[in-house]
Nucleic acid binder design. Structure first.
Length: 268
DNA sequence: GTACGGCCCTGTTAGC
DNA sequence: TGCTAACAGGGCCGTA
């Protein structure tokens, strides 16, 4: 499930091949999630950006293609044209270099939007997203203030994208474990908020360095898996011993997401 | 504003 | 072996 490191990996791979390319034809699956793809006929792509888990592909006419990969979305290039026989092909753009950019998505949790550049009012999660993890204005104090704005559980807050952008289920569990913070906690002091911020930066940076985490579906633009799955210390390890203290990790469903933590070193 | 439930989807896995 | 049910999960929407 693509989170910030996976989306950043895709962005970096797309950039060199996409910038300046003109769309000479486009098509999509009939679902409204994907039909915006068709609005891009004739434009040229600019330099791909990213905000949280959203890919932002600027177009030469002052708009942006906003791509959310959902859980199983994948962007890739294909020589000579799109593979229209692929049952999971959801959208495609034929480019002026005899290559097609394809968006495939097995579970259709992904979505595409075309908006005037920088106008995200109709994309609530993007519109309300907190700062990027490495934003210089994001400090222990400002992060603490953002967390304090809600009384919801920390895990829920992280998944909401409001305190910080780009964190999903995997990296939230990893960061909370690393910072020794209970996912069900509802408030933190400034110091502990600083610990959590530092842990989030660490696990996200590690994810980027490893080209993302592939549990099952995620592939980068070249069709390769990431390698960060070998580094996970909490996520998906319920029932196994905590690497720090040996106590068995437990899991529970919070906010409809499986959450794994150590009942000993993440007591509070 | 917040909390909560439900929905979208389909491949995989567990259980019978 | 073959079937069914449960599960995975990010974002969004409606309701309270």
């Amino acid at each position: 499930m693509p989170e910030l490191p996976e989306v950043e990996t895709v962005r970096r791979q797309l950039a060199p091949e996409l910038v300046g390319r003109r769309v000479i034809d486009a098509g999509s699956h009939p679902s409204a999630k994907f039909t915006p793809a068709r609005q891009l006929n004739g434009i040229r792509f600019g330099d791909p950006g990213r905000r949280g888990k959203y890919l932002l592909l600027p177009t030469s006419d002052g708009r942006e293609l906003v791509v959310h990969l959902g859980m199983t979305g994948q962007l890739r290039f294909r020589q000579h044209g799109p593979d229209v026989d692929d049952p999971y092909l959801r959208a495609w753009w034929m480019l002026d270099n005899d290559r097609a950019l394809e968006f495939a998505d097995v579970r259709r949790f992904g979505r595409l939007r075309v908006v005037p550049a920088g106008h995200y009012d109709d994309i609530p999660t993007l519109h309300n997203a907190g700062p990027e993890p490495w934003d210089s204005e994001l400090t222990p104090r400002s992060f603490h203030a953002r967390l304090k704005a809600s009384r919801r559980m920390l895990k829920t807050q992280l998944l909401s994208q409001r305190p910080i952008a780009g964190v999903g289920n995997i990296y939230a569990d990893e960061a909370l474990w690393l910072a020794r913070i209970n996912p069900k906690a509802t408030r933190l002091g400034v110091d502990r908020a600083g610990d959590l911020l530092e842990a989030l930066r660490q696990v996200l940076q590690q994810g980027v360095d490893n080209g993302g985490t592939t549990l099952r579906d995620y592939r980068n633009v070249d069709g390769d898996s990431g390698s960060n799955q070998g580094e996970l210390l909490a996520y998906g390890r319920s029932g196994e011993p905590c690497i720090r203290c040996g106590v068995t990790l437990k899991s529970d469903v919070l906010d409809a997401r499986t959450t794994t933590w150590c009942p000993n070193c993440q007591r509070h």
